[in-house]
Amino acid sequence: MTAAPVAPAVGAKPIVTRILPRWRQHTGFMLGFSVLVVFALMAILAPLLAPHDPYAQDLMSRMRPPVWMDGGSWDHPFGADQVGRDYLSRIFYGARISLFVGLCVTLLSCLIGTTLGVAAGYFGGRVDTVISFLITARLAIPVVLVALAVVALVGSSLQVVIAVLGLLLWDRFAIVMRATTQQIRSADFIVAAKVQGASHLQIVVQEILPNVVNNLLVVATLEIAQAIVLEAALSFLGIGVPAPTPSWGLMIAEGRADVFFDPWLITIPGAFLFVLVLATNMTGDGLRDLTAPEGRNR
């Protein structure tokens, strides 16, 4: 899809102002979204918030437990890891990695999935058959195995993780976009655009996309959560973000050896990962609830 100009809808209220009065009443959404905002701030402001350089090793502080345990100190509120790096700082910087990967992967897969899904739903027929087969084929590919193979070939880096996940996680976008496009493709306002002589691209960009953007947002949120989990999993397996980058998955992997004596090495990044993914999913579910009944406001 080329970047045809999407003119702003004059007057027709954007999605945000339409759901604003109602989202205050949706506890799940408010909770999830607030947590998400906190995490985002944490990631953006990491250089200001972090008490230490996340890469600086300090052998004197090796395996220093968190402040609430015996031997902990306020110098390292979450303790320090096996080579004495400040755990809190690494958590802050880890949020950057998680969110960055989540957003980039989602952007990439959204682009692929939406293009395929809208094309399948809009054109139908043979195009739909081919794209449906692509979706089915994609669902048969195990993400982790492909990632392993790719890393074995080109080595691991942040870019590789984003590329591999982005190129593999578009299926949900494609499925949802195909279904929603099919629903509105026969609406009279699409026929009206055809009667006015609109091209396929004009119809898709000006008539269809404004009507599916709600669903797109919901899927994107859920997809971010999935990408974050997968990044952590890949990093844990050693095929994701390479050390010493502060990724939560990597931190869990590094704490694996000491899990019996110092379980906090795993539970702290684990808890952050859990909360971030939960919050993202709650935001996505909330968005779905909030946009669904008005989605077809007729």
Binding site: A9, A12, P210
Partner: peptide, 10 residues
């Protein structure tokens, strides 16, 4: 027949 996402003018 009318796109619910557009204004009357649009």
């Amino acid at each position: 027949a009318l796109n619910p996402r557009h204004s009357v003018g649009r």
